[in-house]
Simulated assay, not measured.
Amino acid sequence: MFIFIFLSVLNLYVSGCWGGCAEVDSLTEAVEGEGFLLGCISCKRREEVKAEAVVDWFFKPSAQENYSHIFQYDHPTALSPDPVFAGRVEWRGTLDPDIQIGAIFISNLTANDSGTYRCRFQRTLFLSLYNHEDIIEKRVELQVVAEAQRELTAVVAEILMYVLIVVLQLWLILVLIYCYKKISAEQEAREDRKALKAQTKLLDPDEDCDGIKTE
């Protein structure tokens, strides 16, 4: 879920920059009573070509066969024709006619919101000789659960994070010990050189206290 929140926030600030567009799949598990970001990304293959797109979302409950039209975004107009989703769906995608992120946020989820969501991009590419129409569809199987369940990958990632923190701390301690020993050794070497130099001066009969050799 974090990656789609990041993409949505990023889209608000850099909606005109698409060099980093990546088609990431949406998460598929939501918690009852909370909101959920349904992700749908369709990257334009040729950035230099001007284009416009309309995004439609459809929903089919788990026990039914027919889809209902729940949302449409045709910049800058957003519509929610299904009364079940009216007032609960917000556009979180591209704020520009050239839509590449078609994410929506659904609030106040219930168990009845479990099912298949279909996202459809109707894109028009304005080429030099003609306009090309393209339709891209993606599906998200959403399951609404009573309580959030931690995924195995999240648990493993958290364990690895703590292991990495411990390893880095041990490595830092070893580095500090090494640096301390090295500085101490250099300090002892300087003291030895000073003592040796002083001893050499004392043993040299041809040099007086002022460092001037006698005739």
Rank of each mutant, 00 (worst) to 15 (best):
S15G: 12
G16S: 12
G19Q: 14
E23M: 13
S26A: 04
S26D: 03
L27D: 13
L27G: 12
A30T: 07
V31G: 07
V31H: 12
G33P: 02
G33A: 10
G35S: 15
F36Y: 11
G39H: 03
G39I: 02
G39S: 01
C40P: 03
S42A: 09
S42C: 02
R46W: 05
E47A: 12
K50P: 01
A51C: 06
A53E: 07
A53I: 02
V54C: 07
V55F: 02
D56F: 03
D56R: 08
K60H: 02
A63V: 10
A63Y: 08
Q64C: 09
N66M: 08
S68A: 13
H69P: 10
I70K: 09
Q72N: 10
Y73R: 08
D74C: 04
H75D: 11
P76W: 00
T77G: 01
A78E: 05
L79K: 15
S80A: 14
D82S: 11
P83R: 01
A86N: 04
A86P: 01
G87S: 09
E90H: 13
E90L: 13
D98S: 15
I99H: 04
I99L: 03
Q100F: 07
I104V: 15
I104E: 05
I104K: 02
S107P: 04
L109E: 00
T110P: 06
T110C: 00
N112V: 00
G115V: 08
Y117Q: 03
C119K: 03
R120G: 00
R123F: 01
L129M: 08
Y130E: 14
Y130I: 10
N131H: 11
N131W: 03
H132Q: 12
E137T: 14
E137M: 06
K138P: 01
K138S: 14
R139C: 08
E141G: 05
E141A: 13
L142H: 04
Q143R: 14
Q143V: 10
A146S: 15
A148W: 10
Q149G: 06
E151F: 02
